[in-house]
Amino acid sequence: MDVFLQQLINGLSLGGIYALIALGYTMVYGIIELINFAHGDVYTLGTFFSLAILTLLGVTGIVTGPALIVVVAVTILGAMILCGLTGVIVERLAYRRLRNAPKLAPLITAIGMSFILENLMLYWHGPSPIPFPAVIPNPAVGLGSVTIQAKQIMVIVLAVVLMVVLQVFVYNTKLGKAMRATAQDKDAAQLMGININTTIALTFLIGSALAGAAGFVSGVYYGSTWFLNGFAAGLKAFTAAVLGGIGNLAGAMLGGFLIGLTEAMTTQFISDQWSNVVVFSVLVLVLIFRPTGLLGESLPNKV
């Protein structure tokens, strides 16, 4: 039982990272029905940007006191802004022209952009895993027989907070309303005076910024990064978005946590080498039996 609870915590923290990435997938899919394949790589880019900012700040280890808040705030915001801009640039370069093309076309450019980003990161830091400074003091809190680390609490709390903020933004602001309108019917939204291009760019900005936050968090959490991390993480986060119901923000988070748990429990009760197979089997099975996901509404084939 102790091990089970401990793995629950491991799974939830892993899931928190997937959830942050999944929010970006689900937003973009919700508005332009594109699987933004490059999103996982924007997340990895988030760890690279964070690392660059930390290096600029001269941070190489654990920071304490008031400086910690400044360092974390500056790094997270910096990574979010840079990733957000990357997302906007990717959309402008690779997707906007193809908005009315057959669905295959932007999906293929998305794969292309993913390869391009991965290789740019390969040039940036080389092919080996890169150490990432610990930054945050990591005391472990004992709860009965299980322990929770400060880092794990940070991941879970940040995922929930950002999801709630996003939810409020999308449902209670004018810009959020514009996004929802664009998602429902681009032409009608345009007739209502909504600037479609700006709204879609905004969606990419926010989704990619969340990936940037996830990047910082995962760098701190694992203490390392690698140029190809985004592929597997992105695919799992996409699985999370589909599991929760694509287009649904709360669903993306729920899916993220479920996928994280699936992975941890597979490792504990079956074997680590099967965890990817199990997660991707979940993806295939959900798409076959419940393509709308747990919290999603049915999406009719557009005529």
């Binding site: 799974g11 892993l14 490792t267 504990q268 965890s275």
Partner: peptide, 8 residues
Amino acid sequence: GQQDFKAL
């Protein structure tokens, strides 16, 4: 390419 070894 695995990154998370906490569960293991």
